[in-house]
């Protein structure tokens, strides 16, 4: 399976961050580099980002997320990095041993440096704490994105989007193009969370209203979502809106459970990069930071 019983560097996660750390490290002269990715292919979240808006700074060209992943994979392929897809890392030890399972079995391999490039997960707490029933039709925006773009499934016909983060804005347009009606994007804050250009090209272009300072109070519906009750916090007015689908786009949380579970702090050969470090709006920055981190690692 792996060609060595010890590596200079093991990277967990094959998204843009993990790939760029490998590229940087190879540039710096590291020889034994292992990249572990749980999915069958590299690219991370970029694989479900079929919209344009990536690479303007790094590739000097506007690409889709999928194109960015493809281009950057070429850079990775020019390095000596060994890649194992379909490998899930489930445990780390303070001695920098990485335990992972893949179709060939379970492996525990030590390394000089271990980089956590595991990305982030979507916040769902708001979803779970919104009072009301628990009918079908409630999704995170990222899950909806995967359903539509990769599996060709439409989550519903009349949607309300909770939160004005980029994934929610991108999905408002995506659902509209696929024939669904997006009735509103509701944001509890008094300002947009995502990029302004996404509000313009995803909401304004399609006449989708953005309700700022609006709070969702209750989900109504028996088997399927039937409506939401919400409050305009500026006026205190409470209203209901009929819909069959709710998409939550209420933020991302860096995925660092592997370190937390093992009681390890970053440092002493452990590093965190990309969205696992902090949430990045732009992938170009993720790539540059990752390459820099990779170059700073010395072989031993």
């Amino acid at each position: 399976m792996t060609t060595h019983d010890h590596y200079n560097l093991i990277i967990i996660g094959g998204g843009p961050s993990g790939m760029s750390v490998a590229v940087g490290a190879a540039e710096a002269g590291l020889k034994r580099i292992l990249l572990l990715e749980r999915h069958p292919r590299l690219g991370g979240i970029l694989n479900q980002c079929i919209h344009l808006g990536f690479g303007l700074s790094y590739f000097k060209e506007e690409l889709t997320g999928t194109e960015y992943a493809f281009r950057y994979k070429k850079n990775l392929e020019e390095t000596c990095t060994e890649v194992i897809t379909g490998s899930f890392v489930h445990k780390l030890t303070p001695q920098k041993q990485v335990a992972f399972v893949c179709p060939e079995g379970e492996f525990v391999i030590p390394a000089d440096h271990v980089v956590l490039a595991t990305g982030c997960r979507e916040r769902t707490r708001e979803m779970l704490t919104t009072p009301g029933t628990r009918p079908a039709g409630i999704f995170t925006a990222g899950l909806a994105q995967e359903m539509v773009n990769i599996h060709g499934l439409l989550p519903g016909k009349n949607a309300v989007i909770i939160g004005s983060g980029d994934i929610g804005l991108i999905m408002a347009r995506r659902m509209t193009l696929e024939g669904a009606r997006v009735l509103a994007v509701m944001e509890i804050l008094d300002h947009l969370s995502g990029l302004v250009r996404n509000k313009i090209q995803c909401l304004d272009d399609f006449g989708i209203p953005l309700y700022l300072r609006h709070e969702i109070l209750e989900i109504l519906g028996k088997n399927r979502v039937e409506a939401v009750r919400y409050r305009d916090n500026a006026t205190g007015e409470v209203k209901e809106l009929s819909c069959d689908t709710l998409l939550y786009s209420v933020g991302l949380i860096p995925e660092r459970d592997l370190l937390i579970d093992a009681g390890i702090e970053p440092g002493n050969g452990y590093y965190v990069s990309g969205n696992a470090d902090y949430v990045h709006d732009l992938v170009d920055r993720v790539t540059r930071d990752g390459e820099r981190l990779g170059r700073s690692l010395s072989g031993s």
Partner: peptide, 9 residues
């Protein structure tokens, strides 16, 4: 208009 060509807006 707000320019949407790049994230500078």
């Amino acid at each position: 208009y707000t320019c949407i060509v790049c994230p500078t807006c």
